[in-house]
């Protein structure tokens, strides 16, 4: 009996050792999290002084990782502003310049690749995205017989992603932008499953951005570098649009197919377009999501 107890002890000891050893990979966790970040409060509960501390922490982390001191701001929505995007499908030539301008502006991971905009090459005569080609590789665009449809976050009035998030890590702000608190997201990817526009992206591993490609003009809810394991998506370039500028994808478009502005201002471009143009489309209108992103034809 005592021999049995001894052997049981040995096996138990061996088991505990193996248990400890099985966690060996955790040595490489590195800057996965830290106390300050772990205990950080929810965005909407942060006082201005809390926010200052959080921003200092983020600036420090970015500087340590990328060797560049960024300027991080917590930009609030402007009064009397509701953003709307309008995209002219007659003009778009499918050159994908918007995709890469967005990556550059918003500090998206280059490898593995995260892109907020997906351009679909569509045959004339259909708005069915399942007929679209994501992987077209053309030396010369536009090709005859096709039109091109860039798709990104539609900033819905009834966003399914916000509804499903179990921890309120994503919400709609009063200027219509649906934002994500990257420090609150638990990475369950329910929003990614809920989005009818496939607009959300997950950081499957630590994002990789070359040091010289960092855009130092950052905002908390916008383009600050993300961590492994959280969601991100198009936020209409908060760091630009909330200080009155156009989003990066708009400025990159070589044919002026992209139009952006304040729908509450009757003199804005988007107000003009929605008033004057006859054929405009909310993608998958039947979903009841009511996008703030409109597609239109003008010829």
């Amino acid at each position: 009996m005592s021999r049995r107890s001894f052997l049981r002890g040995c096996a138990a000891f061996g088991g505990v050792t193996a248990l400890a050893a099985s966690l060996a990979p955790l040595r490489e966790l590195g800057d996965y999290t830290n106390t300050e970040q772990f205990l950080q409060k929810y965005y909407k509960e942060l006082t201005p002084s809390d926010m200052t501390k959080v921003i200092t922490r983020i600036e420090g982390e970015v500087e340590r990782q990328y060797g560049i001191r960024p300027h991080v701001r917590d930009l609030k929505p402007m009064d009397g502003v509701e953003f709307v995007y309008a995209l002219n499908l007659t003009r778009c030539i499918g050159c994908r310049k918007c995709v890469h301008a967005c990556v550059k502006e918003n500090n998206q991971s280059r490898s593995p690749e995260i892109q907020y905009i997906r351009v679909l090459k569509m045959p004339h005569g259909s708005m069915d995205v399942e007929k679209g080609n994501h992987n077209y590789d053309s030396k010369q665009v536009p090709e005859k017989g096709f039109f091109y449809m860039p798709i990104q976050c539609q900033q819905c009035k009834n966003p399914p992603c916000v509804k499903v998030c179990p921890v309120n890590a994503t919400w709609q702000e009063k200027d219509g932008i649906t934002v994500i608190d990257y420090d609150w997201c638990i990475g369950c990817r329910y929003c990614e499953a809920a989005c009818p526009y496939w607009a959300r992206r997950f950081n499957f591993t630590k994002p990789q951005i070359p040091k010289d490609k960092i855009n130092p003009d950052m905002s908390y809810l916008g383009n600050r570098p993300r961590k492994q394991g959280v969601m991100e998506k198009c936020h209409f370039c908060i760091q630009r649009t909330r200080v009155g500028k156009y989003p990066a994808c708009l400025e990159a478009c070589p044919v002026g197919a992209r139009k952006f502005g304040n729908i509450l201002d009757p003199n804005s471009e988007v107000s003009y377009i929605l008033r004057e143009k006859r054929v405009f489309i909310q993608l998958k209108e039947e979903m009841g999501t009511s996008p703030r992103f409109f597609y239109y034809f003008d010829k």
Binding site: I93, C95, R96, K121, N133, H134, Y136, Q140, V141, P142
Partner: peptide, 27 residues
């Protein structure tokens, strides 16, 4: 008329290396 031009590279898929071939153009 706007002249045609070269399109920027298309998307790269997460698991391209491990036989998860994405759907190449079915059109």
């Amino acid at each position: 008329d706007i002249p045609t031009r070269e399109a920027a590279p298309g998307p790269h898929y997460l698991h391209e290396a491990s036989s998860h071939e994405p759907s190449k153009s079915h059109r």
